[in-house]
């Protein structure tokens, strides 16, 4: 109990310090807009990103009920997840391509690189998928 009380006390202290810093360094107009952004990111992850993941997961699980699919569902699910997370990270790069502050910011061809990365992930996933499926065929 003592540990929990100490953790909570330090937590509240650090949090209030952060709030004080925020009040010190931001203009009133900025302080009013900040909660909109804080709320916006919560909506983005709780009402867009996570529900999308849950929905795709549900579809994959439904698909996996078919004969022998339980052997390959892992490869499908992992591939989809990796494509999803790398694409999420790539979105700002793709949006800002060519708009860097100077030519050394965002110097790559991000569309080409992103396509290459996704192709690599999908090919690797496909290889695992085929290996896992061929194992079933051999056994039966």
């Amino acid at each position: 109990m003592k540990t929990r009380a100490a953790l909570a006390a330090f937590g509240v202290g650090f949090g209030l310090w952060g709030v004080w810093l925020m009040l010190q360094s931001l203009q009133p107009a900025q302080l009013i807009r900040l909660p909109l952004w804080l709320g916006g990111v919560v909506i983005a992850d709780d009402f867009i990103l996570v529900p999308t993941t849950v929905a795709v997961g549900w579809l994959v699980t439904r698909w996996s009920i078919g004969p022998d699919r339980h052997r390959t569902v892992g490869a499908v699910r992992t591939t989809l997840l990796y494509v999803g997370i790398t694409t999420l990270i790539a979105i700002p790069l793709l949006l800002r391509q060519g708009k860097g502050a100077n030519p050394t910011v965002l110097p790559r061809d991000y569309l080409r690189d992103w396509l290459l990365l996704e192709a690599t992930i999908i090919l690797a996933g496909l290889a695992v998928f085929l290996i896992q499926r061929s194992r079933i065929t051999q056994r039966s």
């Binding site: 937590g11 509240v12 650090f14 949090g15 209030l16 952060g18 709030v19 810093l21 360094s25 931001l26």
Partner: peptide, 14 residues
Amino acid sequence: ALAWIIIGALLVHI
């Protein structure tokens, strides 16, 4: 400032 708020809220959460 957010960094301190995160560490604070994380300790409360733990």
